[in-house]
Simulated assay, not measured.
Amino acid sequence: MAGVFKVLCQVSHKQGRRVAHQPWINHMTRRSLASFKASDLQIQLSTELKQKPDPNNLVFGKEFTDHMLVVDWTKDGGWTAPTIVPFGNLSIHPASSSLHYAIELFEGMKAYRGVDGTIRLFRPYANMDRMSISAARCALPAFDKDELLKCMSELIRVDRDWVPHSTTSSLYVRPTMIGTEPSLGVSPPTQAKLFVIIGPVGPYFSTGTFNPVRLYADTEHVRAWKGGVGYAKLGSNYGPTIMPQVNAINNKGCQQILWLYEDEHYVTEVGTMNIMMYWKNEQGEDELVTPTLDGTILPGVTRKSLLELARKWGEFKVSERPFTMKDLVKGVKENRIYEIFGAGTACVVCPVSSILYKDEDLEIPTMKNGAKLATRFYNELNDIQYGRVQNDWMYNVD
């Protein structure tokens, strides 16, 4: 628990939030009991194995493996022994707090079968850190991140034949925790369920891998706000975005929303991605810029990785700072923008071709300029993820 609390304090300090002083974290720290242990893991193998899909025709999030990981928690009894069981439906009380008050969190990460046949997870410790922060924020129980990672690794090993033998697809890993408090009071849950489901995935967007998308800069709706929970990966951050997303697709001809904030229209993030802009700034410097983690933005693992790669190269300025649509529009009109692209676990790196803002279509020259930086990022990450380049970001499942 001390380790979890330390991470919370460090991340909060870096992001300029006083999370460490908020009473719900101290309360959560006091009331959580000891974590489950991977050494107690029990495995019940399925007797009916499913046919595996064609790895070249995978639709994101539609296929799931034969097994899942489940761990239950109660306030009085703590965590039960983790179990791997046949994939199937959950049974929860109709009054469960996750259904009524959105006491729920999730994570998303990927496992890759390397060119050497070894299965590896990409930076799972970063996901575990973020999951701990999300759990504290919505009053769900703390857990030992190393123990969960060991349990997830065993789940992947059990279903290892589902990890695609492909360098264009991977195995998506979705840890989830829900409040299962069987009462209608708005209070910290006394019961919770942690489960992990996994499945093979291909490109996130129907347009395919590394194809450019068109964004709708939404001036009406807001995804997150300062003092809110935009930094945590909670289901409540995503549900309210679906209606505006449908509008962007059906009425605006755009694949994703570019979320803005405050009257100045600060750029924050895209629907399923962090956003990055490579341009010549007003000081004449080549700069890769992405919005600051100010509490309104999810601290993406791919975002973190691209920034670290760029800083290691040392070839241009790398900045995490606020910028507005006014800055972006001015950059487009003055031909100072080279590329704009999204970054996320699902899409990895996704170029942006245009942005619809206040009925004006801003043509972004990402593809016209060859998407050189986005392509370089994409290729370097792929080389790391599929084991062509050795990197300590990869966690060996085998």
Rank of each mutant, 00 (worst) to 15 (best):
S91V: 12
Y112I: 07
S134P: 08
Y101S: 11
N127R: 02
G88A: 12
F122R: 08
D116P: 09
A126T: 02
I92Q: 10
A126P: 01
F143Y: 15
F143R: 13
D129N: 12
R130N: 03
R137G: 01
A111T: 03
A136C: 15
I119Y: 03
A135I: 03
G117T: 04
K150S: 13
A139N: 14
L149F: 05
M109I: 06
G117V: 02
E147F: 00
S98P: 11
E154L: 03
I92F: 02
A102H: 00
N127H: 04
L149P: 12
F106W: 02
D116F: 00
C151Q: 06
M109A: 03
S132C: 14
A142C: 15
G117P: 06
G108V: 05
L140I: 05
S134C: 06
D144M: 01
G117R: 07
L99G: 10
A95S: 15
E104K: 09
E154A: 05
L148C: 07
P141T: 10
E104S: 11
I92P: 10
A95L: 14
L149S: 13
A111R: 09
A111S: 04
M131G: 07
C138R: 06
R130I: 04
D146Q: 15
L105Q: 08
S132N: 11
F87Q: 14
D146G: 15
L105S: 05
E104I: 00
S96F: 01
I119R: 13
L121S: 06
C138D: 08
A95N: 14
I103G: 03
A135E: 01
A126W: 00
C151N: 08
A142W: 01
L121H: 02
S153T: 11
M131C: 10
G88E: 10
I133Y: 06
R113P: 03
L99R: 13
R130H: 02
A102F: 00
R120C: 09
G88Q: 13
V115D: 13
Y101F: 09
E104F: 00
K150I: 06
D146F: 10
L105V: 08
F143S: 10
H100F: 06
I133C: 08
S132F: 00
M109H: 04
D146R: 15
K110M: 02
F122P: 12
G117L: 06
G117M: 04
L99K: 10
M131F: 02
P94A: 04
S91H: 13
M128W: 05
Y125G: 11
E104Q: 14
D129H: 07
L155S: 09
L148S: 07
I119A: 05
D144N: 15
